[in-house]
Amino acid sequence: FEAIGAPWTVTKRFLRGATIEVTGPQGKAQGEDAEARLHALLGSVRDTSQKGDAATYGALGLLWVAQTDALAVTGPGQIVRDTVRSTLEAEVGSIMGGPAYKRVRTRVDEQFGRYWSPTGQKRGRQNEATERVEIAETAAREAAERAAGLEKAFSELETA
C-alpha cells in the first residue's frame, strides 16, 4: 500500500508463530516496532484486548468487519471522526483562504452588488428589469385593448 507518499509492505502471520514485518522508506521493522509503525501509518491505536475495539482502528476500522458484527451498523470511532474533521477543516480552510476563493468571492460580490444593496434592497439591474417588465406589461395591455377595439369595430362593420 502507499501512505505518506511512499510504498509500504506488510507481512503478517497469525496464530502459531505470529509475526509482523513492515517495510518502507526507512527500512524494515519487525515485532513491536512494526506494529507501532503500522498503527502510526494507519492512524490507529493498538488495541490488545481480546475482542478488539473498532473505535481504536482509525480509518482502517471503516473497512474492518468482525464476524460477529457483520450485520450491525455502528458509527465510526473518535479517531476516524477526528481525522475526517481535521481533513475537511484543512480542505475548507485551504479553499476559503486561497486565491481561488478570493477570485470567486470577489466575482460573487460584484454580481450581487448589481442586483442588491448591502442591506438586501433591490437595486441596479433588478430595478431596471422591473421597470422594463412594467413597460412591457403596459404596452401589452394597451395592445390588447386596441385589438379588442378593432374586433368590436370589425363586428360593427360586419353588422352594418
Rank of each mutant, 00 (worst) to 15 (best):
E2G: 04
E2D: 08
E2W: 03
A6G: 08
P7N: 09
W8M: 02
W8K: 03
T11K: 00
K12R: 12
K12N: 05
K12P: 00
K12V: 13
F14S: 15
F14D: 13
R16E: 04
R16G: 02
A18I: 05
T19N: 08
T19M: 10
T19V: 08
I20S: 03
I20W: 01
I20F: 01
E21T: 10
T23L: 06
G24F: 01
G24P: 08
G24R: 03
P25G: 11
P25H: 09
P25S: 10
Q26C: 01
Q26G: 11
Q26I: 00
G27E: 05
K28W: 00
A29P: 00
Q30H: 08
Q30F: 04
G31T: 01
G31W: 03
G31E: 02
E32T: 14
D33F: 00
A34S: 13
A34T: 08
A34H: 10
E35T: 04
E35V: 05
A36E: 11
L38K: 03
H39F: 11
A40R: 02
A40M: 00
L42C: 08
G43I: 04
S44R: 03
V45S: 09
V45F: 00
V45Q: 13
R46H: 09
T48M: 07
T48I: 10
S49H: 06
K51R: 14
D53K: 10
A54K: 07
A54D: 08
A55T: 07
T56M: 11
G58E: 05
